[in-house]
Design a protein around this nucleic acid. Structure first.
Length: 721
DNA sequence: ATAGGGTTAG
């Protein structure tokens, strides 16, 4: 009869239990693990359900989900707490795959007839809410929780509220109804509702709930409430509300928590007031990497990339370690600043710090390489991932568009659709841009069909990209229809519609649109004037063009750029006012560094009007300035030959050879039955070249029969040789 | 005795 060993076992078991709790709370994994080993050794790990559950919880809280799962499977007599520890471990990781595991576990739990309790549902709903609208399966679980009578539990209620809040615009009204009907609400419920509205960019509603809360339950406010409501304010028009909340947080003492201070910096940055963001940053008592990231990203997003990069180096010297988010912000700054060298350094930094190549990091890298013109490195980054998400696809497609490779952009888009990825608004805008550049009306129409199919609205950027596509492809009527049906037009939409009209010979309509735009109160920018001046040039309105050119700087304070000078020279040139054009170029020299561009335009105009004297003058200017354009040399030498100045012809030809300028052969292509046929000038290689030539001959004859007279010009002929 | 919900940085 000896009770000794048993009492020792019991005693150590209870002290072991206290230890596990302690290690779990302090997430001390090494100590916890050795304790687990000890438990296995003395064989008491399976004897006591409290101990076994605590082991599962230990691993779960230390983010060792697979170990938690193993410990869970070892338990013979699982109870609801065992399930809850594992389920909540998975749901707290916030990762997508873990959230899916939660749903699987729950299904398994019910198959094994374990009865969930309110703790279980809190975890389930938390996981479901992190899946957003894509994983909105909350209805069944909602019913079950209702059936079991758990909805009055404030934990269950709040987490379920979050499911509806994160399930997309369509569910936010149900969420509000649920919130209004909750039998018990605490600060978490209020935070959830406010951040739900913030998530949907429903600023007024978010601030409204916040106001009611301060009024009714001011004592329940905490830093979470403040960070949520601040996150709702992300547009310049709401900056005054933001300032009020900022003051309130200061008055109530919440500004001294890092999260509220960070949210304040972010709020000002998103509202476009970088000065306020900067002072909020400087006044924040405690800075972490998020504080720095918020300001760096703020500068990057407001176009001040230089400042963003400078801040990053300051951060480095202050000894603060960057997080992935900081580096992503810096990468974005590099992308918009065309800073490939710095971008590569950040890439190196990311590798050095050993960050997991998560989707958003890779997206930022691909975006950076693509925007900085390094499309092949962008593509390697893209190919690295097995299942690129829509943002990554869009970055890659936009990258091709930006680098002028519209064919590859379209090819990527087709591949993306084949792989079942649903495009977003930015994807559509990018591929439409590619169609515009290719003047690919048929493909553009297909994209239009996708836009209708996916239910995208004709807002900026899709609306303006679509109207541009139609206008640039020559379908002015359709372009105008889309333009008129847009709920709101921004400057870019007006500009692109104007350019469509002007490029397709409807200069008068472009000018009318310009007047309409001014009447509607939209302020023109330099692009507007490029379009308008080019419209004047195309329809020969020299006087009008002149007055608009003057109006641009006098009335709108826009200094003329090279493009405007070019339009003006073109305008004079087309109207045959060649000497005015020359005078204009000479006078422009004091205002803009036009280099070769303006003389080249004048040279063409001189050719069209056969003014060989002035043409020779312009051509000599071009050669003097070291032009690398073959057409300039060819034109000039043909002008000299037309003037009979053979030594000059010889001189220009020699110079052309000396400088290694050569004419690129003309090339065109056509897509037939998804195969591209390419033709080069004087082509003999196409397998069906004989048939092509026969057809060409037939067409020429038809043209001549219809009365077409080819335009023979000694200059022109020579140039085309 | 063990287990639960909400916030900020892309």
């Amino acid at each position: 009869m000896s009770y000794g060993p048993i009492s020792v076992a019991i005693e150590s078991s209870s002290s072991l239990f206290t230890k596990i709790l302690h290690y779990t709370q302090s997430t001390n994994l090494p100590k916890g693990q050795s304790l687990h080993a000890h438990l296995i050794k003395i064989g008491s790990s399976s004897s006591c359900i409290y101990l076994s559950n605590s082991i599962v919880n230990l691993y779960a809280k230390c983010h060792r989900l697979s170990d938690a799962h193993l410990a869970f499977q070892e338990i013979q007599n699982k109870d609801v707490v065992s399930w809850n520890c594992l389920i909540n471990g998975y749901s707290q990781s916030g990762r997508r795959d873990s959230s899916i595991s939660v749903l699987k576990l729950f299904k398994q739990m019910r198959q094994e007839n374990a009865l969930p309790n309110p703790h279980t549902f809190a975890g389930i709903f938390s996981a479901v809410s992190s899946l957003g609208d894509a994983g909105f399966t909350g209805k069944q679980e909602h019913c079950l929780a209702f059936k079991l009578g758990y909805l009055s539990d404030v934990f269950v209620g709040s987490s379920l509220l979050n499911v509806y809040c994160k399930a997309g615009r369509n569910h936010i009204v149900e969420a509000r109804k649920m919130f209004d009907e909750m039998p018990e609400r605490n600060s978490v419920s209020w935070t959830t509702m406010i951040s739900g509205y913030a998530w949907q960019r429903l600023v007024k509603e978010a601030v409204g709930v916040f106001r009611v809360m301060l009024w009714e339950r001011g004592d329940d406010a905490n830093e979470f409430v403040f960070t949520s409501v601040l996150s709702a304010i992300a547009l310049p028009e709401f900056i005054n509300v933001g300032k009020q909340i900022h003051c309130l947080s200061l008055k109530n003492g919440y500004l001294w928590t890092v999260s509220v201070a960070n949210a304040t910096v972010t709020m000002y940055a998103k509202c476009g007031s970088l000065d306020d963001a900067c002072s909020a940053f400087e006044l924040s008592s405690e800075k972490n990497s998020i504080t720095w990231s918020a300001l760096i990203t703020g500068y990057a997003q407001n176009g001040d990339c230089e400042k963003a990069l400078k801040l990053f180096s300051e951060m480095h010297y202050s000894g603060m370690n960057p997080s992935e988010y900081t580096l992503v912000g810096v990468l974005n700054a590099c992308s918009d600043f065309d800073a490939l060298r710095e971008g590569k350094q950040v890439h190196g930094y990311l590798l050095k710090l050993g960050f997991e190549p998560q989707m958003y990091i890779l997206t930022a890298l691909v975006d950076m390489y693509a925007k900085c013109g390094n499309i092949s490195d962008a593509r390697s980054g893209f190919d690295y991932l097995k299942e690129p998400d829509i943002v990554l696809w869009t970055s890659m497609i936009a990258g091709y568009v930006k680098n002028g490779d519209n064919e590859n952009a379209m090819g990527m888009y087709c591949r993306m659709l084949k792989e079942g990825v649903i495009p977003n608004e930015l994807t559509m805008a990018s591929v439409l841009k590619a169609c515009s550049s290719l003047a690919a009306l048929e493909q553009g129409k297909q994209i239009h069909a996708h836009i209708v199919k996916h239910g995208f609205r004709l807002e900026v950027p899709i609306g303006s990209a679509l109207s541009t596509m139609y206008a640039k492809s020559g379908s002015l009527h359709d372009g105008n229809l889309v333009f008129r049906r847009m709920p709101a037009r921004d400057l870019v939409s007006w500009n692109s519609m104007m350019s469509g009209l002007s490029q397709n010979g409807c200069g008068t309509d472009a000018l009318e649109l310009f007047e309409e735009m001014l009447l509607e109160g939209t302020k023109p920018d330099y692009v507007t004037f490029v379009n308008i001046l080019s419209a004047c040039s195309h329809i020969g309105l020299v006087e009008r063009g002149w007055s608009i050119f003057k109006m641009m700087s006098n009335e709108f304070g826009i200094e003329p750029r090279l493009e405007h000078f070019a339009c003006m020279v073109d305008m004079f040139g087309r109207a045959g006012k060649l000497y005015e054009a020359k005078e204009f170029i000479v006078s422009a020299a004091s205002q803009v560094d036009h280099g070769l561009c303006l003389w080249r335009i004048l040279l063409s105009a001189c050719r069209n009007y056969r003014n060989y004297e002035l043409g020779a003058y312009a051509g000599e200017k071009l050669i003097e300035l070291g032009s690398q354009e073959s057409s300039a040399y060819v034109l000039l030498s043909s002008i000299y030959s037309a003037l009979g100045r053979l030594e000059d012809v010889e001189r220009v030809r020699r110079l052309m050879n000396l400088r290694g300028v050569s004419k690129e052969p003309g090339c065109s292509w056509i897509e037939l039955k998804s195969q591209f046929h390419v033709f080069v000038v004087g082509d003999q290689l196409h397998p069906q070249i004989i048939h092509v030539r026969k057809e060409l001959w037939k067409l020429s004859k038809l043209m001549k029969d219809e009365g077409y007279k080819p335009h023979f010009d000694p200059c022109l002929e020579l140039e085309e040789l």
